[in-house]
Nucleic acid binder design. Structure first.
Lengths: 122, 122
DNA sequence: ATTATGTTATAGTATGCCTATAACATAAGA
DNA sequence: TCTTATGTTATAGGCATACTATAACATAAT
């Protein structure tokens, strides 16, 4: 799975890492049980510091997307806390949809966007 | 319109201000043409510095939600750049929905959430 | 035995957030 | 007209976060 960092982005590097890994899981580029590169290895190929990768992995673990095993490294392992995920998604959607609502984006247009994105998950 | 700041949040104060104002517009608590409190006034009632409010207002202006008029203060005035808003929403949704997808949230469940939130806009 | 791993610690730099204070021209109100 | 409140701009300091750089350790694989 290819990971690309935009060093000119105002988004923190470790957040970019998180998001790309999560999107990789969602799009089935990496599956449950697969291993991510080691902290040092990924840091080296991407060209960033070890600790930045370590931070991303630590948060991904805490959020229930991977498990850190000394033998196998960072392994995709989803902690299925769906109720919590739904609550968090609602709060995020509330601010995101409000922006759209101000710009006159209809409920149907949001549905269409959601469908488009879910098309990528196959 | 009541604005409440969570000083223990890891979300920046000026971002909280932005989001609450945008949600206020979306839910029609404040309408096009209405004025927001002055920079100093809002800073005073909320208990924060003037520049923090000024920063929030400046970004809201730049994003096309308000216009700053020396006479009337910060006036709600939506710059209807819908195409741009749709592009931004798509990018935000891509990372948000990916998280949900990993946690097994279905397309239909997202639709339901969207509908719930749009119910607040009336 | 060597190598690579995750983990932890310390330290330095840079950037962003928030605050404090001050000053200015402009517009509204008395 | 005088006073007050406005948006705007400038400078500066404290603080937290992000990123990097080294270093060290025990553990597991080769």
């Amino acid at each position: 799975m290819l990971i690309e960092i935009d060093f000119n982005s105002d988004e923190a590097i470790y957040v970019q890492l998180q998001n790309q890994i999560i999107m990789g899981i969602a799009m089935n580029l990496i599956r449950e049980g697969d291993s991510l590169p080691s902290v040092r290895q990924l840091a080296n190929t991407v060209g960033i510091n070890m600790h930045t990768v370590n931070k991303a992995y630590a948060i991904l673990k805490q959020e229930g997307f991977i498990q850190l095993d000394r033998r196998r490294g960072a392994v995709i392992a989803i902690d299925m806390d769906k109720a919590r995920a739904l609550l968090e998604m609602r709060e995020q959607l509330r601010v995101l949809l409000a922006r759209g609502r101000c710009k006159d984006i209809s409920k149907e247009e949001v549905h269409a966007l959601v469908d488009e994105i879910y098309e990528e998950y196959r």
